[in-house]
């Protein structure tokens, strides 16, 4: 196989990894070659069935505890094995606090990104480590949107993107700086996307970034700055951002 073998490139095409020139070339070949088009369907079916059938599981709780003890982040593990279950919540809280404090010390010092980006990433990490990544869990925009009433000054824009592959998981209140902001949570395959909506005084250009392994996309629409954060690939997050911006407003 040469690097330009269409049977190879069709995978990169499905993964959103091709630049526009190569993507156009593959699209032309897909139109001309029915066998290649069928191969593309198979690859997409395989990707989809893997995402659906092989969900990502968390690390075993005892593992995190042992590792924390090994590096001195917590005292040596409690000897009673039977107590391992109840203490998991306490552990999750302590990890989250440690990560949150740690993040303040390191990300702000290391990252070239604007402070807003650091804060939305910190909020996202905090949410992943909490018992629940959302304060209100629902896939129904008519449940999620009203929940924000009275909690923050302006209700966020909530859209349903399940048909685009991004089902709504729910919403929560995050704090960036000292301001409470609305954050929606969407799912893509087994990953979560946090989308924070911050009233913005000015329009900023769409921008992409990465902090600590998390991809970030931000943009402004109608005076609101949107920040999407996730550990999915940058291309997937970009697809999400485009789907969100293109979606019909809630009715």
């Amino acid at each position: 196989m040469t690097p330009t073998d269409p049977r190879l490139l069709v995978h990169a095409y499905v993964d959103g990894e091709l630049d526009p020139a190569h993507a156009l070339e593959v699209e032309r070949q897909l139109a001309d070659d029915p066998a290649l088009a069928v191969e593309r369907e198979r690859v997409e079916a395989l990707r989809h069935v893997i995402a659906e059938q092989l969900p990502r599981e968390g690390a075993p709780p005892g593992l995190a505890r042992r590792i924390e003890a090994a590096v001195g982040l917590r005292p040596a593990p409690a000897p009673a094995r039977a107590s391992s279950r109840p203490s998991w919540r306490a552990l999750a809280a302590s990890v989250a606090v440690a990560a949150f404090l740690g993040s303040g010390a390191t990300w702000l010092a290391l990252s070239p990104g604007p402070p807003d980006a650091d804060m939305v990433v910190a909020n996202h990490v905090r949410a992943l480590m909490a018992t629940q990544p959302v304060d209100v869990g629902s896939s129904d925009q008519h449940t999620v949107k009203p929940w924000f009433n009275g909690r923050i000054p302006e209700a966020p824009r909530v859209v349903e993107l399940a048909s685009a592959g991004f089902p709504l998981v729910g919403g929560r209140i995050d704090v960036t700086g000292r301001t409470p902001v609305a954050t929606l949570v969407y799912r893509v395959r087994q990953h979560l996307i946090s989308l924070s909506e911050v009233p913005a005084g000015r329009t900023i250009a769409t921008s992409h970034g990465q902090i600590g392994g998390y991809n970030i996309v931000s943009w402004t629409d109608n005076g609101v700055a949107y920040w999407a954060v996730s550990d999915v690939a940058a291309a997937d997050l970009d697809t999400f951002a485009k789907a969100f911006r293109a979606a019909e407003p809630e009715r």
Binding site: G58, V71, L73, V95, A99, G102, T106, G212, G213
Partner: peptide, 17 residues
Amino acid sequence: QARFASVVLPHLADAYA
């Protein structure tokens, strides 16, 4: 320790997988 907590621990599930 703080760096370890913010850099490594968030990716424990990925590491285990």
